[in-house]
């Protein structure tokens, strides 16, 4: 009798558990169905959009984070994500030229269309996070003789640790425009995020004080915003010109330049060739700092905050300093 009671109780518990799971699943589905569907091009934007949107958005990412942003592969699975999206959050300044215009062209989503003239996104669903950015390295002349230039200026501002608030504000602004009913929620989430991020930025500024005035070279010309934050003077690149691979003649000249100017720091973006950087380090006695150009470039650096912090620690470690 006791056994039967136990069995009955267990059955009831199982039934209750099943019903609960079904209810949770249905609620989750209903919530997901009601949520704003957002596609973000890079993991930094996925992270911040999740923070600003909270449970009101469902965010899908395109780039994984370890790629060269100039060479992100267009997968048809990205097309289906963009097709169903209410909004696309992108860095802009044509940095996503390798994949976003081509994907928008075939995504058949009237809310976000490719603009062939600007390689940008046009439509109500477009959220460009570069709005209001103080753009650095605007080219004086537009010629491919200068390499693979971005016509509107250097677009790698997400590597600048102090650019988080700009990204967050633009995302909040964009989400509020597309989903005005929840504008107050996005504003509140933005405030909470900034309350967390801004003290960190202040702390990071203290960390990087020893880096001020230090001369360095990077592999690609994508570190100007990082340079502005840290005070590091990036004087040259391993690439001959943006997007043009290092040539032996250029590398020899770079070795001379680094010796003459006593440059002791090489910044390698993790996606670029480690061998040539090591060769340069061997020739000049400089130390190498490996940084990520997007969140999730390294395991454990999935968010904008984490990748920014990791990059700064890598720079400090390369010059024998520690965060203070």
């Amino acid at each position: 009798m006791k056994f039967m009671l136990t069995e009955k109780t267990m059955k009831n518990e199982l039934l209750a558990l099943t019903l609960l799971l079904v209810a949770v699943s249905l609620t989750a589905r209903a919530q997901a169905a009601g949520a704003l569907r957002v596609v973000a091009t890079v993991p930094d934007l996925v992270d911040i959009t999740n923070r600003i949107g909270g449970g009101l958005v469902k965010v899908d990412g395109l780039a994984k984070g370890a790629e060269d942003i100039h060479q992100v592969v267009m997968r048809p699975s990205f097309v289906t994500k963009l097709n169903k999206a209410d909004a696309v959050v992108f860095l802009g300044l044509s940095v996503e030229h390798a994949f976003l215009p081509g994907l928008l062209d075939v995504a058949a989503n009237p809310k976000m269309r490719q603009d062939p003239a600007t390689q940008g996104c046009v439509g109500t669903g477009c959220i460009d996070t570069s709005e209001g950015l103080s753009v650095l390295e605007k080219p004086d002349t537009l010629s491919r003789a200068q390499g693979e230039l971005h016509p509107q200026g250097n677009p790698h501002y997400n590597i600048g640790p102090d650019q988080g608030p700009l990204l967050a504000r633009n995302i909040a602004k964009g989400l509020s425009r597309i989903d005005p009913v929840h504008a107050a929620d996005y504003k509140r989430n933005l405030k909470e995020y900034l309350a967390e991020l801004e003290p960190k930025i202040a702390l990071w500024r203290k960390w990087v004080a020893p880096l001020k005035g230090l001369k360095a070279v990077s592999f690609h010309k994508d570190v100007c915003y990082l340079g502005r934050f840290t005070g590091i003077d990036f004087v040259d690149t391993l690439e001959l010109k943006p997007g043009v691979a290092p040539t032996p003649t250029h590398l020899e000249a770079l070795v001379r330049e680094m010796k003459e100017q006593d440059i002791k720091l090489i910044v390698r973006e993790q996606q670029y060739d480690p061998k040539v950087c090591q060769w340069l380090a061997d020739q000049t006695g400089a130390k190498i700092a490996v940084i990520g150009t997007m969140a999730n470039a390294f395991p454990g650096a999935e968010t904008f905050e984490k990748i920014s912090e990791r990059n700064l620690k890598a720079l400090l470690a390369a010059v024998g300093k520690e965060p203070s």
């Binding site: 267009m74 994949f99 081509g102 062939p116």
Partner: peptide
């Protein structure tokens, strides 16, 4: 390639 160049989805 001179000038404008877009990575097309169909030709990827």
């Amino acid at each position: 390639v001179l000038g404008h160049h877009v990575h097309g989805f169909r030709d990827r």
